[in-house]
Structure formats: C-alpha cells, structure tokens
Simulated assay, not measured.
Amino acid sequence: MSEIKVGLFSKNQLKSIIEAVVFSQRKPISIAQIQSLIFPDDNIKKLDIEAALELLKKDYKNKSIELVELATGFCFQTKQEYAPWVSRLWHEKPAKYSRALLETLALIAYQQPITRGEIEDVRGVSVSSSIIKTLIDREWVKVVGHKEVPGRPSLYGTDKNFLDYFGLRSLSELPTLMEPESIELIAGRLEKELTHDGD
C-alpha cells in the first residue's frame, strides 16, 4: 500500500523535513514561519505541519531530548532530568541577577501592565533604570503602552522571550500565587529557575 501524500511529500518525508528545520534553529520556530519560509509553494497546510509536529513529539517521547512548544514556536531541548549532566559542558556560571531585578521581573510578570511607579509602591524602594534596561535588553520585558495619567508613564509587560526562557507557552502557565505570597518568594522561585538554566 502506497504512503499517503501531503502535497509533494509522504508523511514521513514531511516529518523529517520539519524535524531538520526545527533542529537547525537556535530559537523556536513557529508553524507560520515553517509554512511561509520552508514550504511557500508546496501546498502544505497548517494542519499538515501541526500533524507532523505531533508525530515528532511522539517519536521523541522516550528520548533524552524533546520537542516542546513555547510562546514563539517549537524547539528541541534537553529533558529536565538530564540538565545536571548537560550543564557540565558550560564552564561559565549562569548570570547572577540581583534580588531587586528578580522582584521587579516578578511584579511585571504577575501584575502587568504595570508602571515603574507602581512597582516602586509595592517594593517600597525605587527601581533603578539599569534594572529596567537589563530586562528590556534581555527581551524579557517591553513597553506595552502608557498609563492615561499626568506624565503618561510607560506600562511594562513581559515579552515572548520571557515565556520562552522559562519554558512557558503563555502567561496562564505561570505558577498560581498562593495568597498572601510575598513578592520575595516569587523572586526566589524565578532565581531557582534561572539557576537551573545554562543561559
């Protein structure tokens, strides 16, 4: 029996092409990018790509790496249980972030959109410009608008790279806060995540 064709390709060929494409990328790649960049003239539909990605997830289910969907697309990554060994490849220690930066990031993540003044009200201290600059430079935070009050201060929210970095598809996957959980505990949780990451 001949294999079912998807456009010009068999299902296995399509799956293999998509596997190679995702594997070759340093950053996550979306279904829309795969469709427009890899198959612009091949009559490959979004559903065909989704089906191939699901087959790949199953193929890698019992392996040490997995295909994951993040906020900006799909990527291969090492399964968490192998991180202690893989991290030995990097001699550099992960970047250390100050408690002030982590608390600021936690406030933005959980209370966005939020102004710098509102962050300062919760923390009880001023937020340095370098903290906001670091978060924006890392593409974890971006200006999402301006509050309609005198001075029109910037409103900050998380960027999709924040979600990718922490292995989330959407903000709804952030851990639920247990009230009254302090912002310091949230910052501690973020710090733990960053310590496990080799970035």
Rank of each mutant, 00 (worst) to 15 (best):
L101F: 11
F23A: 14
K57H: 06
E120H: 10
L67D: 00
L105T: 09
S24E: 11
L89K: 11
H196W: 11
K79M: 08
S182F: 10
Q25Y: 03
F39R: 00
Q112M: 06
V22E: 00
N43A: 09
V141L: 05
K147R: 15
E173M: 05
G198A: 15
A106S: 15
G167L: 03
K93R: 15
F23Y: 14
V141D: 03
E66S: 12
N62G: 02
L56Q: 02
L47V: 07
T134C: 07
T176S: 15
E139M: 05
D159S: 09
D164W: 03
L155N: 09
E50C: 01
E191Q: 12
N161S: 13
I38E: 02
P175T: 14
K63R: 15
L101W: 05
A20H: 10
Q111L: 06
R116Y: 01
S24G: 09
I4R: 07
I31Q: 08
L105C: 03
I31F: 07
I183L: 09
D41K: 05
N12F: 13
G73F: 07
R189V: 04
S129M: 10
S130N: 13
T134W: 06
A83Y: 15
H91I: 10
S30A: 08
T72R: 07
I65T: 12
E173A: 12
I114R: 00
A71C: 00
E92K: 12
R123I: 13
A52L: 02
L102F: 09
E81S: 06
I38K: 00
S87N: 15
K93Y: 05
E66H: 04
P28F: 13
E173T: 08
K27T: 09
I18T: 02
S10A: 09
D164I: 03
L107K: 05
K57P: 01
P180A: 13
I108G: 01
I131Q: 04
F23I: 07
P153W: 09
K57D: 01
S129N: 06
D41A: 04
F166L: 13
G7W: 05
Q111Y: 14
L107A: 09
P94L: 08
K93T: 08
W85D: 12
L155H: 03
E50H: 05
A71T: 06
L70Y: 02
L155P: 10
